[in-house]
Computed example of a mutant assay.
Amino acid sequence: MKAFVYDHGKYQVKDMPDPKANAGEVVIALKRAGLNHRDLFIANRLGDGKEALVIGSDGAGIIESVGKNVTNVSVGDEVIINPSLRWRENTVAPPAGFDILGMPDNGTFAEKIVLSAEQVEKKPSYLSWDEAATLGISAMTGYRALFTKGALQAGQTVFIPGAGSGVATYLIAFAKCIGAKVITTSRYKEKQEKAKELGADIVLDSNSNWDKELEKETVDLVIDSVGRATFNKSLALLKKGGLMVVFGSSTEDTVELNLRDFFYAQQQLFGSTMASAEEFHEMLALMEKHRIHPVVDTVFTLDEAENALHYLEQGKQFGKIVLAINDD
């Protein structure tokens, strides 16, 4: 099979052995794969000596073969992949043994993948292959941050800095479908307009005076993934007793926190990452109920995977980037 791999210090498209399904496993002929920022960090984590690893965490395709004792899917089923490995029930933190598909295991940027049958779910029929391939890291991360950790309710207001990321587009759609108010930001005019089209109630310029523009708003929840560049500006908007959830740090990892201001305001700060299979099912049910369509920015071919990574790294996309693997 053809695959996009990180091999001894460089990315390349390479022929790899076709995977085989052992007991409890399935082989999926992939139609599409979704990109995530995690894919950009593989080189930093593996260095130059690692043998060929297929990267990629998100994907959708058709069951090609099944191993013994597989009962939840059959050959020919259209499925999506849950990239959150070995985390079944919704717990306060991932259990021991938790990993994310795509490192250290081979991932989705390939014509085929083998994985435990527990990691696949039926593809929602109303979604295209492009859309279905994005229902992994971003959607799961957004759902857990917003509902499990953030406990967002109808009528509340959530502030989401950075409107264009894949997770942010899911956050906006999820929050709006339950009747919450959404405030978000972007430094790009085009992304500001797209966020409004997606349903955001207020969209600010990233470089504007947030305190002044939102002085009449009550922010119940902040979901931040930017890091140092926005952390304290976001926290300053949060109401007394409000809650902030952090799931990423696309700028600097470390921040300064005024502890006195924080504890006097009796605010709450939660970390979050990925989600359990239980939450994955809840997220799919929410999407189907409200017929939520993921936002797909650009589709590249598998041969163009390195260009797709460069495009992701530039951060100009609004929504998700997808690899088209097989259209047969």
Rank of each mutant, 00 (worst) to 15 (best):
Q12G: 07
V13G: 11
V13P: 08
K14S: 05
K14N: 09
P17A: 15
D18I: 08
D18H: 14
D18P: 13
P19G: 04
P19Q: 10
P19W: 04
K20C: 14
A21V: 00
A21L: 06
A21D: 12
A21F: 01
N22Y: 05
N22I: 11
N22C: 11
A23N: 14
A23Q: 07
A23E: 09
G24F: 14
G24E: 09
G24W: 06
G24V: 06
E25F: 06
E25A: 13
V26E: 00
V27G: 02
L30W: 01
L30Y: 06
L30P: 12
R32A: 15
R32Y: 10
R32G: 13
R32C: 13
R32P: 06
G34V: 02
L35V: 02
N36G: 12
N36D: 08
H37W: 08
R38N: 10
D39W: 05
D39V: 10
L40D: 15
L40A: 03
F41H: 11
I42D: 10
A43C: 06
A43P: 04
R45S: 11
L46K: 13
L46D: 13
L46I: 09
L46E: 13
G47W: 05
G47R: 04
G47T: 06
D48F: 11
D48I: 09
D48C: 15
G49Q: 14
K50E: 12
E51P: 10
E51S: 14
A52G: 09
L53P: 03
L53K: 08
V54D: 02
V54R: 01
V54N: 01
V54M: 04
I55G: 03
I55K: 03
G56T: 02
G56N: 00
S57A: 03
G59K: 00
A60C: 07
G61P: 02
G61Y: 04
I62T: 07
I62K: 06
E64W: 10
E64V: 04
S65N: 09
V66S: 03
V66D: 02
G67L: 00
G67A: 01
G67I: 01
K68A: 12
K68D: 14
K68Y: 15
N69M: 05
V70S: 01
V70Q: 01
N72F: 03
N72E: 03
V73R: 02
S74Q: 05
V75L: 00
G76K: 06
G76W: 13
D77R: 02
D77E: 05
E78M: 10
V79A: 00
I80G: 00
I80S: 00
I80E: 00
I81W: 12
I81N: 01
N82P: 12
P83E: 08
S84Q: 04
S84G: 09
R88Q: 15
E89S: 14
N90D: 12
T91A: 15
T91G: 09
V92I: 13
V92T: 09
A93F: 08
A93H: 13
P94L: 11
P94Q: 14
P94A: 10
P95T: 09
P95M: 03
A96W: 12
A96M: 05
A96Y: 12
G97W: 04
G97D: 05
D99M: 15
D99S: 15
I100R: 07
L101N: 11
G102P: 06
M103A: 10
P104V: 09
P104H: 12
N106H: 08
G107F: 00
T108Y: 06
T108E: 02
T108V: 01
F109N: 02
F109A: 10
F109P: 02
F109K: 02
F109S: 03
A110I: 03
A110N: 01
